[in-house]
Nucleic acid binder design. Structure first.
Length: 430
RNA sequence: GCGGCAUUAGCUCAGUCGGUAGAGCACUGGAUUGUGAUUCCAGGUGUCACCGGUUCGAUCCCGGUAUGUCGCCCCA
């Protein structure tokens, strides 16, 4: 294995077997999004670096140490490979006034980049489906987004994905809580470990997430954000929960659920599985009412979430999902110049009728060609040799049974015969 | 970014107490010079991840690097 000809660490090739599986996944996702009225938006992978600093927050891990940022050597512009999708989506919405007249439901799908240490479910280039709703203020859209998740898991045949929700309140409520929290931790400074000390003034909420057992009792008694929420925030949170209860969606309120990005307020939620090891969050999001204004747009309430495609696909695999390799309807076997010319004509004629056709290329004996025909999974083989070519005919052989029947037909009659038999066998299956 | 474990054929893996390596699957050809999946026969397709050290000799021992993996961190 040469060291120079390798993909960049943490950036994976998705080979055909896997890629077909991805396409099936994407088909499911697109029709699911359509069912909720979401429309696609396609955004650049590269954005100006300041966009992410302003949107995500200067002191977050993402911005501090995980972004692929560089200076465009041709014009000196600071650019960054997008580490998440919301910032770019909001930038586009502001630039094109998307939410000015009416609320918008938008989605996108594509790669994101973060320079983290690769691990299962965590790669440097990874893919997300992002879903954003701009211009909706009430808890109804938050709740609908959560219901969407539940439906998608069902559509994908997944279970055991658990919902956690929390409310971060409004910035001023968070600020009060944060001050109280820092004061509380300062009182217990002698208990704090190095990690906690590092975060004390940058991201004290994260201390609550500690896995250090020595800190957990102290954290359990720390000031709770929910006690700092005002009536409006509490009502919003209750509004979300009422829809969840009506829909019969089980959830747990996780007061320690904090987002890694600064722009969230009010509702935050996460869908988590315990089947993927350390990277168990497959979908997460929340409300970000301040972001549009913060990025220079007219104040617009907003809510969104993102799903990790690699993680969901790993989970589908974990649950026994296997891609059914798509097989052609027909494999055309041929030998000799005249036969080859007739084979091309036959292949295009069959494709005209909507059939999927693999035309054998590369020569070889009938025997080896028949092996490839079988290996392709095709339902039929069409065999054309000198004899058939002389009369404009072809042998049509059914491959999906032992010693499959074979009959000679005019090339122009192949499509009709094949389609007829395909329909018959579909009827039998039903 | 930190720590543990791993890396042998296209794939899944075995093996060599240090003497340059094997199985299954897959693949190629043949068993009827025009027919597959079954069966039989033949074929190894490999820088034993890379670089260096120890040694008469290293795939094996040691060090470094790369990549993967598990956990930490972080997060989708």
């Amino acid at each position: 294995m040469s060291q120079t000809l390798q993909a960049v660490r943490g950036m994976n090739d998705i080979l055909p077997d896997e890629a077909e599986f991805w396409e099936l996944f994407e088909d499911t996702v697109r029709s699911w999004l359509k069912a909720y009225g979401y429309r696609p938006i396609r955004l650049p992978i590269v954005e100006p670096t300041p966009l992410f600093k302003r949107a995500i927050g200067e002191v977050t891990d993402i911005v501090e140490k995980e972004m692929y940022s560089f200076i465009d050597s041709l014009n000196g512009e600071p650019l960054t490979l997008r580490p998440e999708g919301t910032a770019g989506c909001v930038r586009a919405a502001i630039q094109h006034n998307l939410a000015a007249q009416q609320p918008r439901r938008l989605y996108y799908l594509g790669q994101m980049f973060r320079h983290e240490r690769p691990q299962k479910g965590r790669y440097r280039q990874f893919h997300q489906v992002g879903v954003e709703a701009l211009g909706f203020a009430g808890p109804d859209i938050d709740a609908e987004m959560i219901l969407m998740g539940a439906r998608l898991w069902a559509d994908l045949g997944l279970d055991g994905i658990e919902l956690q929700i929390n409310s971060l309140g409004q910035p001023e409520e968070r600020a009060q809580h944060r001050a109280a929290l820092i004061a509380y931790f300062e009182e217990h400074a002698e208990l704090l470990d190095e990690d906690a000390k590092r975060r004390l003034y940058t991201n004290p909420l994260r201390i609550l997430d500690t896995k250090n057992p020595a800190l957990q009792d102290m954290c359990a008694a720390a000031p709770k954000l929910i006690d700092y929420l005002g009536d409006e925030s509490l009502a919003h949170f209750e509004g979300v929960q009422r829809v969840l209860r009506d829909a019969g969606i089980p959830y747990t309120i996780n007061p320690r659920l904090v987002r890694g990005l600064d722009y969230y307020n009010l509702t935050v939620f996460e869908w988590v599985t315990d089947k993927l090891g350390a990277q168990g969050t497959v979908c997460a999001g929340g409300r970000y009412d301040g972001l549009v204004g913060q990025l220079g747009g007219k104040a617009t309430p907003a809510c969104g979430f993102a799903m990790g495609v690699e993680r969901l696909i790993a989970l589908i695999r974990e649950s026994g999902g296997e891609p059914a390799a798509p097989a052609p309807d027909v494999y055309i076997v041929h030998q000799g110049d005249a036969a080859s010319r007739l084979a091309f004509r036959a292949a295009e004629g069959l494709r005209d009728q909507g059939l999927n056709v693999l035309l054998h290329c590369g020569g070889g004996s009938f025997k080896s060609q028949m092996k490839k025909a079988d290996g392709s999974g095709a339902t039929f083989a069409v065999v054309i040799g000198d004899d058939e070519a002389a009369t404009g005919e072809a042998q049509l052989k059914f491959l999906r049974e032992e010693g499959g029947a074979q009959r000679k037909l005019r090339v122009d009659d192949l499509a009709g015969a094949i389609i007829e038999q395909l329909i018959d066998s579909e009827d039998e299956e039903e």
